[in-house]
Simulated assay, not measured.
Amino acid sequence: MYHRDSNRLNRPHNAAKPLVLIIDDNEDDRFMMSRMLERAGFRITETGAGEEAVAAVRRYRPQVVLLDLLMPGKGGLTTCRLLRAQPATERLPIVILSGLSDAGTIRRAFDAGATEFAAKPDAGATLEGYAALAERLHCLLRGQAVSATDQAEA
């Protein structure tokens, strides 16, 4: 498991920045997503294996998880189901990322418990592809905050 500059988590000025856990076996993809999401105002932690996902979520308590669909070992669907089976993470926003976007793949992602499904920016993706992903995450987190406020008022 890898955490980019874990000391930043202890700095007060970063407290308002949402923490994203990236779970992806491709180191280059993790690097690019981390870099672009940090520029968009997120804190990042990452791991390269689905097997480490539950421990990483417990340790870092991210506000959202970006989960690669196709990984060796525990793939994205299995990892998503494992996270959903834990009481502490059953409502955690999970965005499954994949280069596959057929209806069956998307349906399986949602059946496994994904909150969102997004096309994975490929290695040659433009900055706009990563910016769009960052904006989706900001919108998802705003929606989660509104939902939590509505539930608290009810």
Rank of each mutant, 00 (worst) to 15 (best):
T115V: 00
A131P: 02
I106V: 06
I22R: 06
A119D: 11
T45K: 09
L37Y: 10
S34R: 11
I22W: 10
K17E: 13
D28C: 08
A40C: 15
F42T: 04
M71W: 00
L100N: 06
A131L: 06
N26L: 13
L19N: 02
C139P: 03
D122S: 14
T126E: 12
A148L: 14
D68M: 04
E128K: 13
T47P: 14
S147W: 09
M33A: 14
D102C: 01
L100A: 06
H138G: 04
R58K: 01
A53Q: 00
A123E: 14
R108Y: 11
D29F: 08
G104N: 11
E128S: 14
A119G: 13
T45Q: 12
T105S: 04
K74I: 08
H138Q: 00
L37I: 12
A55K: 01
R108T: 13
R59E: 04
E128C: 12
M32V: 11
F31K: 13
Y2L: 14
P93L: 01
A40Q: 09
A148Y: 05
Y2S: 15
C139W: 12
D25V: 06
S6F: 09
G48W: 10
P121S: 07
R35L: 15
A109E: 08
Y60F: 03
L69D: 07
Y130L: 08
N7Y: 11
R81G: 05
R142P: 00
A53N: 01
R4W: 12
I44R: 13
P12W: 08
R59S: 02
V54G: 05
A154D: 10
A103D: 13
V20A: 03
L140H: 02
P87W: 01
F31H: 14
M36Y: 15
A112S: 02
R107K: 15
A119N: 14
A119V: 11
F110C: 08
D25W: 07
V20M: 01
M33Y: 09
D102L: 07
A131H: 03
Q144A: 05
S101D: 10
A53R: 02
D24I: 10
T79P: 06
A88G: 01
E135C: 07
G73K: 03
R4A: 14
A125T: 01
P72N: 03
L83A: 04
E38F: 06
V54Q: 02
N26M: 15
G75K: 06
L19Q: 02
A85F: 04
T79D: 05
A85I: 04
A145N: 01
F42H: 06
I94T: 04
R8M: 14
A152F: 10
Y130Q: 07
E51P: 07
E116P: 07
R61F: 01
Y2Q: 14
E51Y: 12
S6C: 09
G104T: 12
L9H: 11
L140A: 02
E52M: 12
V146R: 11
L21D: 05
L100R: 07
K74R: 10
Q86Y: 02
D5F: 13
N7M: 13
T149Y: 14
M71G: 01
